[in-house]
Amino acid sequence: MQYEKDFLKKLYENLLDMRLLEKKMVDTYAQGRVPGHVHSGVGQEATYAGVLTNFKEGDYYKRTHRVTAIPYMMGTSLDTFFGELLAKKTGNSGGRGGSLHIGELRTGDLGFSGTLGCDAAVGVGAALTIDMEGRDNVAFVFMGDGTSSRGPVYEAMNLAAAWKLPVLFVCQNNQFAISTPSSYSIAAENAVADRAPGYAMPAKVVDGTDVLAVYEAAKELLEGVRAGKGPAVLECKDYRWRGHFEGDQCAYRDAAVTEDWIEHKDCVKNFEAMLLEQGVLTQEEVDRMRSDFDHAMDEAILRAEAAPEMEPEEIYDGLYV
């Protein structure tokens, strides 16, 4: 497959930025500067980057708690991002939502429910709007393998299929629901893809650490979805490098396996190596991209820390329109 150089550079930049942002959240949390929880998605960036490189104006996506950095790739500024993470007035909900609810509707972000799976049908509803308006857009519904065991996910899939709505369900299978391995909780080999035939949906399983493979698989499925053939499933296999949340020591799993994934299946490192080898990027460019974005994040964090919080007395603001 031949790609434009600019396309590959942009994809790499998105992937890299998400990696750096995920890491920055971990570091900032470790420094005690984040008031709530951080669910790191380090190592899993390729699924979002690959799938949403297919995002068109007018599409929607329903995010998950991992990768938290995704709203940045979709157009939310670092100021809004860190404003919300640090519970400041500059966040998208004024710091009242937190890391799980960072995002802006204008970028296509439909929001997220911390009660996992309850929001799967939110993407189906957005697809209903698309259908009513006769657009060739789609709604992406991301979920993890853990969430895939919940009933509302299947109600959402069934309704999308029954109404033939333009939804791409994307399972980011990182193999763990907090501490429980998917091999224990899901009898099928592929958490969502294997169940797709039950909803008459086409499905693909792809290496979720190979950003171009993810991009291509999503692209292929989306041809049918955008053409009005109904929903589809893409399952991306990757691995959760860190704990469910920061502070989780992962005592329940074999550290050697984790090390192996980090060593051999690093989606950023592998893509970077490929682009360097092909001469799409130079080491100098890579280094500059890293330091530029790192600097931009540090500046944004300092601005967020200096930003005001909402006053406690503003607690009722916006409860009703």
Partner: peptide
């Protein structure tokens, strides 16, 4: 669950 969930998505869009 899908009736309510989809109503959220439809309403916000």
């Amino acid at each position: 669950t899908a009736i309510i969930g989809s109503a959220i998505g439809a309403a916000e869009t």
